[in-house]
Amino acid sequence: MSETLHIDWTRCDGRGLCTELLPTLLDRDDWGYPLAKRATNGDRSNVAVRPAHSEAAREAVYLCPKMALSLANQVAGFGQ
């Protein structure tokens, strides 16, 4: 089952731990915040995680100093 790494931008402070742990999925933007290399339908707040990166993603969720990350099997959200 593929997982999704959700970034809570209201918590994220761009400390860079997740981008170190998931270099294939995340870059850092100009201000240090994680930048998903691939968007899913224009959404870069829920990053698809392949099983190969599942362990590193779990590590990132655990170590994020702002507790801004979470993993889920699927994510849905309404617009406005």
Partner: peptide, 8 residues
């Protein structure tokens, strides 16, 4: 030493 290691 990377950032996540510093935290660990």
């Amino acid at each position: 030493v990377p950032r996540f290691s510093v935290t660990l």
